[in-house]
Amino acid sequence: MRVSGFTFLRNGTMLGYPYIESLQSLLQVCDEVVVAIGKSEDDTLERVRAINDPRIRIIETVWNEGMEQRGFVYAQQKMIAQFNCTGDWAFYLEGDEVIHEDDAPKIRAIMEQHFKDPEIEGIAFDYHHFYGCPDLVARSPAWYRQELRIIRNTIRSFAPDGLFWVVMDKNKRGRYARAALAHCPIYHYGHVRSSEKMQEKHRQVAKYWSHAPKPHDYSQIDASILQPFTGSHPSILKSWLRDMAETQFVADQNYQLNKREKRHRILMKIEAITGLDLTKKHFTCVKK
């Protein structure tokens, strides 16, 4: 069994991503890691090269600046990287996602376990979405609790956006991948980078979603969805959390809920009563 890791990056340093740590965590489980690096205004390319691991393969790309619909340029870059993967499994991490060193053997083992089972087309992970500071996680139907991050690299699949895959059984119709659960989390740090870096990220990416950049303010959130994080962070994140993470977060106690957040509060009450998970899934779970 051969495992490929892959991702895409551009201006990773400028935008405050823990992308070096993300790549290093992928190297714990992968036989190769393919990185599509768009032409950047910072040292992203040089820093990835400096990892100096022969398993890393860099593909230099140029983004389509005219693609402004629903972030599809991210799907394009994701697929450039995936199409260059040579493994039986393809493991995708975004530049702000990291796996814990304690989970690396488990992840490799579950791919081994399902390697010869064609019914299992992917592996889905639980998620820790850190928000505002490294000590808080966001939990509500607005934040996906599970997502597919490993896809069998021998089936016809493509990404309609940067988040998920569609499997093509037939030429005219796609479906979500059939997946097993990894029973371990992805650690997502995109919403704890410094406010300054987050504001720059909003400025740069807005055009790819056909809207004007909005001022960023971590305090503007429904504080009821934030819960203390009681686990341990990946050790590889120690320096990044100390030097790059936001530390001054305080939720605005006078924040006014919008319609979407009010709806999510209702869904959370239903979840508490029924035990159901009402978050959207971009995969079909066939083995828990």
Rank of each mutant, 00 (worst) to 15 (best):
G16T: 09
T13F: 06
M14N: 12
T13V: 12
Q28C: 11
E21Q: 15
R10C: 00
V29P: 06
M14C: 07
R2T: 07
V3W: 03
N11P: 06
G5N: 14
G5F: 05
I20C: 03
S25H: 05
R10Q: 08
V29R: 05
L23M: 14
G12T: 04
T7H: 12
I20T: 04
T7R: 14
M14V: 08
L15K: 13
E32Q: 07
S22A: 15
G12N: 08
E32M: 06
F6I: 01
L9R: 10
G12Y: 07
V34G: 00
R10T: 00
V3C: 05
F8I: 07
L27P: 14
T13A: 01
L9E: 09
V3D: 02
R2C: 00
Q24K: 15
M14H: 13
V33G: 10
L26D: 00
Y19H: 13
D31A: 12
V34W: 02
L15M: 09
P18Q: 05
G12M: 02
G12S: 12
V33A: 07
V35R: 00
L27N: 13
V29I: 15
L15E: 05
C30P: 14
F6K: 00
D31R: 15
V33N: 06
V3M: 09
Y19T: 11
N11Q: 05
S22E: 04
V34H: 01
V34I: 15
V29M: 04
V34Y: 02
L23W: 10
M14Q: 14
C30R: 15
S25C: 09
D31W: 13
D31P: 13
G5Q: 11
P18C: 08
P18R: 03
T13R: 08
V3T: 14
I20P: 00
G5L: 04
L9D: 09
S22I: 09
S4A: 11
G16A: 11
G16C: 12
E32K: 02
G16W: 10
N11I: 07
G12F: 03
F6W: 08
N11M: 05
T13Y: 08
F6T: 01
V3H: 10
S25P: 13
E21T: 14
Y19G: 03
S25G: 11
C30W: 13
Q24V: 01
C30G: 12
L15P: 10
G16V: 12
N11Y: 03
D31I: 10
E32P: 07
M14P: 03
V33P: 08
C30Q: 14
C30H: 14
F6L: 02
S4Y: 15
N11R: 10
I20R: 08
V35L: 02
V29S: 06
T7A: 12
T7Y: 06
T7K: 13
L26C: 10
G12W: 03
C30N: 14
L23T: 13
V33I: 07
F6H: 10
L26Q: 15
G12C: 04
F6Q: 01
S4D: 13
S4G: 11
P18A: 01
Q24H: 11
L9T: 06
R10V: 00
